[in-house]
């Protein structure tokens, strides 16, 4: 579903990614783990088009998308819930969600009706968002904002969903809830690429995992493989 081949990208003159390659099969949950600064978030940003890769290929459903503007890639069916959540603070929860479905809703009128089914699905997943549907997103707590960010990505009915650090800065009880949701989405057949600093937790849900080191993939395999790999255990799972 998503294939990254020999990707190079960075900010200004410094290259953060130096030949990253990874594959996400349809219906799979893939974890991307590694130390701070290894290039996990940069990989996500380069895939979704927030930064333009300088070399390499990104294939979404077989179609090359590298170098396209982020909005174009999003309309092709890739949803990226970015690091730091980035909800639209001055808009209501419901408007945030409807904008998440921008790619398949009518632009002018009747968008509420057309988006009703997707909204119901997200509200079913996150009852707390339903309670707060009229509230401004900026006034939500960190955990609620994270749910909103995930819900907003879901609204797009994406082919692939990128989740960047969904647990960042959240209390453990909320982190558990986030991971429960990821499990449920996986059961529904969602394809996901997950960046996570809680490597243990990420490996619990993932079908496959890639370990990044200094801008490229150092090791990859099934979670079971990685748990047997002494080097990985020492560095990331200790």
């Amino acid at each position: 579903m998503l294939e990254v081949k020999e990707l190079y990208a960075g900010y200004g003159l410094s290259e953060v990614l130096v030949g990253t390659s990874l594959t996400v099969e349809a219906g799979a949950v893939v974890a991307l783990i590694g130390a701070n600064g290894a290039g996990k978030t940069t990989t996500m940003r380069a895939i979704s088009g927030m930064i333009a890769p300088s070399r390499g290929e990104v294939l979404l459903d077989g179609q090359p998308v590298q170098g396209l503007p982020a909005s174009k890639i999003a309309r092709l069916g890739l949803a990226h819930s970015p690091e730091g959540r980035k909800v639209f603070a001055p808009l209501s929860v419901e408007d945030n969600l409807l904008l998440g479905a921008f790619r398949h809703l009518p632009r002018f009128f009747g968008f509420r009706k057309a988006g009703a089914a997707d909204l119901a699905h997200v509200y079913d997943l996150f009852p707390r968002l339903a309670e707060r549907r009229g509230q401004l997103a900026g006034t939500l707590s960190g955990g609620e904002q994270q749910m909103l960010a995930i819900g907003r990505a879901l609204m797009a009915r994406p082919k692939v969903m990128l989740l960047d650090e969904p647990s960042m800065g959240l209390a453990p009880v909320i982190v558990q809830e986030v991971f429960r949701t990821i499990r449920r989405l996986k059961a529904e057949g969602m394809t996901m690429l997950l960046v996570e600093q809680f490597a243990q937790a990420a490996l619990e849900v993932a079908d496959h995992a890639f370990v990044m080191e200094r801008g490229r993939i150092a090791v990859h395999g099934t979670p079971a493989d990685l748990r047997r790999d002494e080097r990985v255990v020492a560095a990331y799972l200790g």
Partner: peptide, 24 residues
Amino acid sequence: TTLLGKAFEAVSADRDASELMGIS
């Protein structure tokens, strides 16, 4: 009242995030 109008506000609030929603 229109979704495009709301997209105006979204772009103003967070340019990067609205790009990720497919809003150019």
